[in-house]
Nucleic acid binder design. Structure first.
Lengths: 122, 122
DNA sequence: TGTGTACTCGCAAATGATTTGCGTATTTTT
DNA sequence: AAAAATACGCAAATCATTTGCGAGTACACA
């Protein structure tokens, strides 16, 4: 199945990818249709094997669903995403649960700014 | 100008609104076109008078750009957003800046889960 | 081996929020 | 009031993503 090829791309990537990036990558090896990529991606997300995050640019990014928590620093200039593991949010999440009764299943966090590289080039 | 009507709706709202919600609200008073709403909204965002946040549902939400920090708890069931002021992120942002050189201009945070009300109805 | 059932895919068309081109009002400037 | 600048409506365009449908493929069981 082509699903395996698609899943492999995600598994072998260190950062999150768009559907198109995955499509381009898979296409180098096998013949596949973009809609198949999207369909497969949705399957993987439903099975909790892959995590989908919609960024401020309205494009969905996919990455392997692992328990370790990752967030991204996104440069407003080059639009690159730099992963960071700094996140104290579990603590905050617990606090929210305690104080509001809202049971939290997940969260997304996005930092925006200018990366050092772009700052130098400016 | 219709801009004032649109801005007023945002000013008078306690929570963030979609372009369509704003359009519906403004339409009750004056005749306006949806594209005008979008155009005006973009103007206001450019002037830093309004903040635009794209949520995981890919819909943009607009709210008055004030310095006070707000984040939302979004229920996966009813899709309502509950504002919370709990946010230790400034501390984290400073830490990131110090350790990575990434100068952070802003961030978005979204908690997902089930609100108490929906939990009861389940 | 035959056939039924369930997936898997490709292709083209649909979706839905948002944007844009363009021509016409309306406001602002001089 | 004429000229220059904006604001606006309308219809068509965008663009990532979804969906309907029909054809191909796989697996089960008799």
């Amino acid at each position: 199945m082509k699903k395996d090829f698609i899943f492999d791309v995600i598994k072998n990537s260190t950062n999150s990818l768009t559907a198109e990036e995955i499509y381009n990558d898979v296409s180098q090896n096998i013949d596949v249709n973009l809609s198949t990529v999207y369909r497969t991606l949705n399957n993987l997300v439903d099975k909790n094997l892959v995590t989908k995050v919609v960024r401020q640019d309205k494009i969905a990014y996919y990455e392997l669903a692992n328990d370790e928590h990752k967030h991204y620093l996104i440069c407003d200039k080059c639009n690159n995403a730099y992963p960071t593991d700094m996140c104290d949010l579990d603590k905050i999440a617990r606090k929210i649960k305690r104080e509001t009764g809202f049971s939290i299943t997940g969260h997304t966090l996005e930092f925006h700014g200018i990366c050092p590289e772009c700052r130098e080039n400016a």
